[in-house]
Amino acid sequence: MKAEILDKLQDARRARRPVALVTDLGSGAQALLESGRVIGDDALAADALAAAMKMLDRDETGTVEAGSRRLFVHVHNPPSRLIIVGAVHIAQALAPMASLMGYAVTIVDPRRAFATDARFPTVTLSDDWPDEAMQRLDPDRRTAVVTLTHDPKLDDPALTVALRSPAFYVGSLGSKRTHAKRLERLRAAGLTDAELARIHGPVGLNINAISPAEIAVSILGQITEVRRRDAK
């Protein structure tokens, strides 16, 4: 790999721009594909370029055949995101565990005593109201959203935005009773049954979790199960 390619690849990854490194597995020639442009020493054939762009779009790394060439397309998309609503005790376990799994974590909580840098030293904090914060964060299909406050004032506006977004996972903490009441409120507020069916609630896999860290494991287990379901 040429130093120039490695530098440009790292620049794109730092700036969180989607980029793909294409390697001809026969000749070893390499090129970077970014925003439809090719940088590198390999003049990729048009069909190879098209195949690589499709892989980038699908967030898929692997080999493609292009004529007599075998190309390895290594997709480097920005990290998937986890948006946590509620800077509560469970979030203190959930945020660092999610970071370890490669998620870029944002915690939303307008209550200033909760969302402090001292409690959450390594994640992005937002003290906007959840509906504003969620609109600004604009969840995409590589985003998971989990609400943890139990407080309808905070959870409901966040859920309303999340359920109408392409987020791949929406979960909401609360007992079966709390969740039934939540569904009633959201239905009354105009969300459709199809939208409401997207909520994972009570949140997480049933692993008999008790402590905040165990609940975080159950939530991340469920997020992983949903995220990797299609990859099987």
Partner: peptide, 23 residues
């Protein structure tokens, strides 16, 4: 607070280490 390089697929940032070693 140190800003870790964002990474995907839950691995160490191997490329960042390779670039740092090269430097």
């Amino acid at each position: 607070m140190t800003e870790a390089l964002p990474f995907d697929s839950g691995s160490d940032d191997v490329l960042a280490t390779a670039a740092a070693w090269k430097a």
